[in-house]
């Protein structure tokens, strides 16, 4: 029986969806090693302890809250030193991180500090004796690698959305701890966090992503995409690089090899050819729908459902149908 560790990511005092996914994965790891405990760690400004118990819903047994006035923002050196100390002090089978911007920064620091192996951007994993077997997209999504990771704890960062959060409720014990190093002594200091755009649903968290490509022809036609997204009610809008390069959409909307990687339940690709660099960012979506007037567009090879046709006719009709279905329940 061995315990598992989870880093639970907070932004602006609230858990990000990946925090629940990470705890879910830690629950899986602890259960697979004979029903050990899940120990989650959260960093934040004073007052963070109030949200900590939410993690019990996803299977955390113990939540350690590292509170300090200097930890309201990401503090890479403090987070990594404190996590490394916690991992040194416990005999964990696995330590889980999200492969989010923050988790991808943090996990390799911890791995190097502890001289431990790290499998990053993992989409699935299982314990196998002394090893962990993990799936990981390589070659910008052109291939899936099966990795073997040895050493304990095994460090893994999980692709957001790949392992959905699952409830496994229990009452989590909560404890507070001091950071392992003084935040005032950190060399790298995060001085600002500026939200981009309005308070829209984040691409990485939205259950539905509607993306538009060059087939939209002009920036103003993206209102078709916006309308379809709002018909779903829980959708974010993405774009191809062709579109962001032309300035039709903000670069932060770009999905693909050099943009965001998303794994929503439903991905709707509109007027997108399906270049490999774009597929790298959405290939692991659960269900993919493509709308394109070219029946030979590569996107149809990946799509579960396709409609061949002019998007300017198909999309308004789809928006109407989705509205109707949601209205009628």
């Amino acid at each position: 029986m061995a315990n598992a560790f989870a880093f639970a990511e907070l932004r602006g005092g609230a858990f990000r969806k990946v925090a629940f996914e990470t705890v879910t994965a830690a629950r899986m790891a602890a259960d697979a090693s004979g029903g050990g405990e899940v120990h989650a760690m959260v960093f934040g400004a004073p007052g963070t302890a109030a949200v900590a118990e939410q993690l019990g819903r996803f299977g955390a047994d113990l939540v350690t809250v590292v509170e300090h006035p200097g930890l309201g923002r990401y503090a890479p050196e403090v987070f990594s030193a404190t996590i490394a100390a916690a991992l040194r002090g416990g005999s964990y089978r696995a330590a889980l991180f999200p492969a989010s911007a923050e988790g991808k920064d943090l996990a390799p620091r911890v791995a190097a500090a502890l001289d431990l192996g790290l499998a990053s951007d993992v989409t699935a994993f299982e314990l196998n004796g002394d090893a962990v077997i993990a799936r990981h997209p390589a070659y910008i999504g052109k291939a899936i690698a099966t990795l073997r990771l040895t050493g304990q704890p095994a460090l893994l960062s999980l692709r957001p959305g790949a392992i959905p959060a699952r409830e496994a409720p229990r009452t989590a014990r909560t404890t507070t701890a001091a950071p392992a190093v003084d935040p005032a002594a950190a060399r790298v200091v995060v001085t600002g966090l500026a939200p981009r755009g309005a308070a829209k649903l984040d691409l990485g968290e939205a259950p539905v992503v509607v993306s538009g490509g060059r087939g939209l022809k002009a920036a103003e036609n993206f209102k078709l995409i916006e309308e379809l997204a709002s018909a779903f009610g829980n959708a974010a809008v993405g774009a191809t690089r062709a579109v962001t390069d032309d300035g039709w959409r903000d670069p932060s909307d770009q999905i693909g090899q050099t943009g965001r990687v998303v794994s929503p339940s439903l991905y709707v690709a509109v007027g997108i050819s399906g270049a490999v660099q774009h597929l790298a960012g959405m290939r692991t979506s659960r269900v993919i729908v493509a709308i394109n007037r070219d029946k030979d567009a590569p996107i149809f090879k990946l799509a579960d459902y396709g409609i061949v046709g002019d998007l300017f006719e198909v999309v308004p009709r789809l928006t109407e149908e989705i509205r109707r279905v949601r209205r009628e329940g």
Partner: peptide, 29 residues
């Protein structure tokens, strides 16, 4: 400590299909 056991092409999505052509295919989709 981290090695590649296997490398595969991503699974072909099975059951992928063209539902139809034009806006009339929307209700079926």
């Amino acid at each position: 400590r981290l090695t590649v056991e296997a490398l595969e092409l991503p699974p072909e999505r099975t059951g992928g299909r063209i539902v139809g052509e034009g806006p009339d295919a929307v209700p079926e989709l």
